[in-house]
Design a protein around this nucleic acid. Sequence first.
DNA 1: TGAACATTTCATTCCAGGATGAAGTATGTG
DNA 2: CACATACTTCATCCTGGAATGAAATGTTCA
Lengths: 226, 226
Amino acid sequence: MELENLASVAGLIGEPARIKMLWALMDGKAYTATELALVAGVSPQSASMHLGKMVLADLLKVSNQGRHRYFSYARPEVAYAIEALSNLVPHQKQEIVPVTKDIPFEYCRTCYDHIAGRAGVIINERLLAMEYLIEKDQRYEMTAKGEVFLKNFGIDTDSLLKQKRPFARPCLDWSERRPHLAGSLAMVILKKMIAEDWMRKIHDSRTLMITAKGQSNLYDLLGVKI
Amino acid sequence: MELENLASVAGLIGEPARIKMLWALMDGKAYTATELALVAGVSPQSASMHLGKMVLADLLKVSNQGRHRYFSYARPEVAYAIEALSNLVPHQKQEIVPVTKDIPFEYCRTCYDHIAGRAGVIINERLLAMEYLIEKDQRYEMTAKGEVFLKNFGIDTDSLLKQKRPFARPCLDWSERRPHLAGSLAMVILKKMIAEDWMRKIHDSRTLMITAKGQSNLYDLLGVKI
DNA sequence: TGAACATTTCATTCCAGGATGAAGTATGTG
DNA sequence: CACATACTTCATCCTGGAATGAAATGTTCA
């Protein structure tokens, strides 16, 4: 019966620890069970149990990254519901404050062989927003517009598509908690940007520096200021 | 702390008997404690207790008429929250027959302050199909064509765009399971249609009625028969 | 006025489900 | 390989709050 389903979903949300965790996720980022336990004021075991229930109910989804498990909303409707609920509490201007503080030197870096950090996330989001790529089943596919764009950028997408390595896919960024671009496309993009001196690798570290030339070209290309 | 308030409101809603009563009230009518006890499957004493708590939290209001006490939503935000919650339940084909089976209610009604139900969904789809609006990142943006169209319709879009409230966005309709139009634009559209007597609010309910005048004008405007 | 009905209040019982400590699994690191 | 970290699972305890019967408060109507 539908009414029972509504009751069970409402019951899931109507629990102090769980609603606090859901609220923390309102910033759209993904957090680990331990971090969410902290904001909810419960032990990691409890948090794990609560999160498990919400995943089961398809309120949250989880993506495994090594020994970390990042939780985030499974669908946009969840955010709508939390927002509507928060509108019920007497006048307040609750600001959403990220659970983790930003780490400056992780601003821009490499992840294996592609761009990570905030720059990686922004580039990824722009490529999607401009519909050069579209997400399909945990993979990014290139659109016709995207093919033209990448060709103009000087990338031979044909040879990339022949490789058995995935062409393009989202990879959850551990400092930004949002996905950046991974796959063979991401690799050649970084290679190309270094070749063109848009970015430079710092020493032997994974830190990246964006050159002034890179900044202006990225602005022209994607309309973003990095 | 504000977070605690959110938790307590969510806790109120997240109880089987209470959410069932809240759901029954979605038709905008007022019901007595005994009636609501019936739909929730609890005793009148229990219902009274639950209703008392929700009145205290300003979710419901009560109006005394003789020996009867009629409960209804205290504010439109409550309906909005329940609707958002109901969007979370895993939906197969479902039928909503709470207490009344008024077709008009599902057919055409208000959601918060804009048109919902089938009429809301159809209007939304036509505005998109005719490219007066385009979706971009969970928001609708007005096209040049759309600006002309809305101006002719008698809407001052400039002042709407200055507001901090979102101009236009999709809002999933719980009965149609497709988005209808929300945001400040949707609000003034409804206001305008009521002012022009294209639609009428049924007294004390969220049901809307479309007038013959409204039907013919909507056909001219959007090419749809509602 | 009193009987019937609608609703609430109170005191008490009772249990679903959250909290917790300990142990188990998987991953990364030196 | 050993050890630390991140997270989950399991068994157990425990409590907040829902349900209930009885009784009080109010209202209508004959």
